[in-house]
Amino acid sequence: MKVIVDEDKCCGAGQCVLLAPEVFDQREDDGIVMLLNAEPGPDQYDLVRESAAVCPGAAIEVSEEA
């Protein structure tokens, strides 16, 4: 799994950090998403998929190949 984030679309809600804090964080100054791990392990798959699904900015893309 590969994770891509679009900083321009991120609204700083932090829903992804609430769900998958091992994969996502937010910048201190403006709250924009920081990708901690672009290729997370299988134990994170469901949480990352749910993060992408609920992201209110539609800013997270998950590629299931590789």
Binding site: G12, L18, L19, Q26, I32, E50, V54
Partner: peptide, 24 residues
């Protein structure tokens, strides 16, 4: 509520409201 403090607002939410956005 955060005013130009998105991360801090989210952390306060975790401290005061709950820990997960969806009751999975």
């Amino acid at each position: 509520l955060g005013w130009n403090m998105p991360k801090q607002a989210r952390v306060l939410r975790q401290q005061h409201l709950a820990t997960r956005p969806v009751a999975t």
